[in-house]
Nucleic acid binder design. Structure first.
Lengths: 127, 127
DNA sequence: TATATTCCTTCCGCCCACTGGAAGGTCAAG
DNA sequence: CTTGACCTTCCAGTGGGCGGAAGGAATATA
């Protein structure tokens, strides 16, 4: 497969696949004589793996670690769990942050009349 | 006040205050002969305003709009409310996204034994 | 007065994970 | 033989700053 095919099949932009090759995250299997990147099925699977991991919000470096574990047949599930649990904590922290932001802002928005007069609790709160 | 004073009083890094000056968000009141930025009380208030707006996650450009409304004595609270409601929707969208991410990942983490054996539902899900 | 310290200035590059675009090479079909 | 769809590399930009270097300015101390 050349880059366009593998990108389509993985559901990623070609630019992204090329970027992953550049940073050494998912290397192409080979290069043609004319320099075209070529990918085989396992490489496609790695791209799909990375796409799913990114969708969970794992950083590129975490994806690198996870890919390592993915290929390590003697891995410990504890190592995978540690990385995932860390990401889960980050998500939960972000959720708490957004919740308090939401509560405060929703309260202000509710109390703003939203008419053509200037007085506004939102501006008052920011001032 | 010179930049260090105003930054301390606003609770912002000097670098950030300088950056806000560069992008024309909060201009210094004046410059000394030797080129030092100088800020008066209203400028300090603008910095504090921006700091609070940024804490709500408003973008720098939204802060620009909000600052405009802040100074516009004939503003309509409807304009402020529109911007804030938009931000609120973004927050809610992000919350929904994080919630589904959280549910999926939490489920996987719960079902991962986290021992020294290789089989792992997290890896399985990504594969 | 000399020096040391602390502040300030501008400028450059880096962060993350891409994305867009330009300039040019390659390959199959018509 | 040309067209068009691919591909290549390289450069620059996104948002919202942060870190550091080189050098000027103001002030405190010896």
């Amino acid at each position: 497969m050349q880059i366009g095919d593998v990108a389509r099949r993985a559901g990623l932009p070609t630019k992204t696949v090329r970027y992953y090759a550049d940073i050494g995250l998912v290397a192409p299997t080979d290069r043609t004589e004319s320099g075209y990147r070529s990918y085989d099925e396992p490489a496609l699977k790695r791209l799909v793996f990375v796409k799913r991991a990114r969708a969970f919000g794992f950083t590129v470096n975490e994806c690198r670690e996870l890919l390592g574990l993915y290929h390590d047949k003697s891995r410990s599930s504890a190592d995978v769990k540690r990385i995932a649990a860390h990401r889960l904590e980050e998500i939960e922290a972000k959720q708490r942050e957004l919740q308090s932001l939401h509560d405060a802002l929703a309260h202000l928005v509710e109390n703003c009349r939203g008419d053509d007069r200037p007085d506004c609790p939102i501006i008052a709160h920011l001032s």
